[in-house]
Computed example of a mutant assay.
Amino acid sequence: MTTVPAALATDTGLGVLHPDFGRLVRDESTDTVVCHVCGRAFRALGAHVRAHRMTAAEYRRKFGLLSARALSARSLSAEQSRSRLAAYRASEQAQARFAAGRAMARSGELSRRRWGAATGRTDPEERRRVREAGLGAGRRTQARAADDRMTAALRAHGFTDLGQALRTLYAERENSVEDTARMLSVGRGRLRRLLAEYGIPVRPAGHNSAAGRRSRARLNDLAAAERVGTRDIAAWLRERTAEGATLRELSAATGRSIPWVASRIGAR
């Protein structure tokens, strides 16, 4: 009798291991499929389950398997698939019979009908397991990509240690949460979690650090420059002043206050 991998099976206490609910276990060494009922392995499990007084569909429902799950060994399933495909290609009648279904599949109508029919229906356990495995793999991939981006950002700013980077950029240089997150290529939420992890307190809202003031001034300069279509707002303001523009006119053009315009004209 085939041995079922312990991680996918349950011990009945009688020395026989059975696949867990919602899992179809294959023995790749013998190219067979293991029965949930008796624990033995067969090439054609769908035919075998009749010995347990079940149809293949009833077996799938009873043990939480996908309704379209093949209950055959991989080699047998492949043989059957090739045989059906050859018969389909050789029969114009079969091709005509399935033409409507192919058109529905291409248009997406088949998927819409499937989901509509499934409304309110409980998914098989196997589908839940497959979905959770896929989501978990996607999250791990995204986490690795985020870590890679952060590592590259650390190197670009001359750091090899994350804790050192956080203390230097946020605590010592007093960059804002937004600026520090941008420099490290992470989201603000993750940055706050990292600061807590390294024991670095987050400055209270409204704290007016020198770095914060510089950051806001830089953003204001960029916004004003974009509004008037220049890259150097101070040079633009001095040029317009030399041409005779008043502070009030320049204030209206840039959308900034008169004192702000005066300070940029005097900047060197």
Results as ranks from 00 to 15, higher is better:
residue 162 L to M: 12
residue 176 S to G: 13
residue 142 Q to M: 13
residue 144 R to E: 14
residue 160 T to P: 01
residue 186 V to C: 05
residue 146 A to D: 15
residue 186 V to S: 00
residue 202 V to M: 11
residue 183 M to C: 05
residue 158 G to D: 02
residue 141 T to Q: 13
residue 196 A to Y: 02
residue 187 G to L: 13
residue 136 G to D: 10
residue 155 R to C: 02
residue 141 T to M: 08
residue 196 A to S: 10
residue 142 Q to L: 15
residue 174 E to N: 06
residue 147 D to H: 09
residue 169 L to D: 00
residue 185 S to K: 15
residue 148 D to W: 12
residue 147 D to S: 11
residue 198 Y to G: 03
residue 177 V to T: 11
residue 190 R to T: 12
residue 192 R to V: 13
residue 141 T to V: 12
residue 196 A to P: 00
residue 195 L to K: 03
residue 194 L to S: 07
residue 150 M to G: 02
residue 147 D to T: 04
residue 195 L to S: 07
residue 173 R to N: 14
residue 157 H to F: 04
residue 142 Q to V: 13
residue 142 Q to Y: 08
residue 139 R to A: 15
residue 204 P to S: 08
residue 139 R to M: 11
residue 146 A to Y: 10
residue 164 Q to T: 12
residue 190 R to G: 00
residue 181 A to I: 12
residue 164 Q to L: 08
residue 190 R to W: 08
residue 191 L to R: 02
residue 169 L to P: 00
residue 166 L to C: 06
residue 184 L to S: 08
residue 195 L to M: 10
residue 194 L to W: 04
residue 186 V to W: 01
residue 140 R to S: 09
residue 139 R to G: 09
residue 173 R to A: 10
residue 198 Y to E: 07
residue 202 V to S: 05
residue 188 R to Q: 12
residue 178 E to D: 14
residue 172 E to M: 06
residue 137 A to D: 13
residue 163 G to E: 11
residue 168 T to E: 12
residue 169 L to G: 01
residue 185 S to Q: 14
residue 160 T to N: 07
residue 153 A to F: 04
residue 147 D to Y: 07
residue 203 R to M: 05
residue 151 T to A: 13
residue 184 L to P: 09
residue 159 F to I: 04
residue 203 R to W: 05
residue 201 P to H: 13
residue 202 V to N: 03
residue 168 T to S: 10
residue 201 P to Y: 04
residue 140 R to P: 03
residue 171 A to F: 07
residue 139 R to I: 11
residue 137 A to N: 11
residue 203 R to G: 02
residue 136 G to L: 04
residue 154 L to C: 06
residue 173 R to M: 09
residue 173 R to K: 15
residue 180 T to E: 00
residue 175 N to T: 05
residue 137 A to F: 12
residue 140 R to M: 11
residue 183 M to P: 00
residue 164 Q to E: 11
residue 148 D to N: 11
residue 189 G to K: 05
residue 150 M to L: 13
residue 189 G to A: 04
residue 143 A to K: 10
residue 186 V to G: 01
residue 150 M to F: 06
residue 158 G to V: 01
residue 165 A to G: 07
residue 159 F to Q: 03
residue 155 R to W: 02
residue 163 G to A: 09
residue 178 E to A: 15
residue 204 P to W: 03
residue 168 T to M: 06
residue 176 S to K: 07
residue 151 T to G: 07
residue 184 L to Y: 10
residue 154 L to D: 02
residue 178 E to K: 15
residue 141 T to G: 10
residue 162 L to S: 03
residue 177 V to G: 05
residue 143 A to R: 13
residue 178 E to H: 15
residue 197 E to T: 12
residue 161 D to L: 10
residue 185 S to M: 06
residue 190 R to E: 12
residue 165 A to E: 03
residue 146 A to V: 04
residue 140 R to C: 05
residue 181 A to H: 12
residue 180 T to V: 00
residue 140 R to A: 14
residue 150 M to R: 15
residue 196 A to I: 01
residue 178 E to V: 14
residue 178 E to C: 06
residue 161 D to I: 10
residue 159 F to H: 06
residue 177 V to R: 10
residue 177 V to L: 15
residue 197 E to G: 04
residue 155 R to M: 02
residue 145 A to G: 01
residue 148 D to R: 14
residue 165 A to H: 02
residue 192 R to A: 10
residue 195 L to G: 06
residue 142 Q to E: 15
residue 156 A to S: 12
residue 187 G to C: 11
residue 169 L to C: 04
residue 194 L to E: 07
residue 142 Q to F: 08
residue 137 A to P: 00
residue 148 D to M: 11
residue 156 A to I: 09
residue 177 V to E: 08
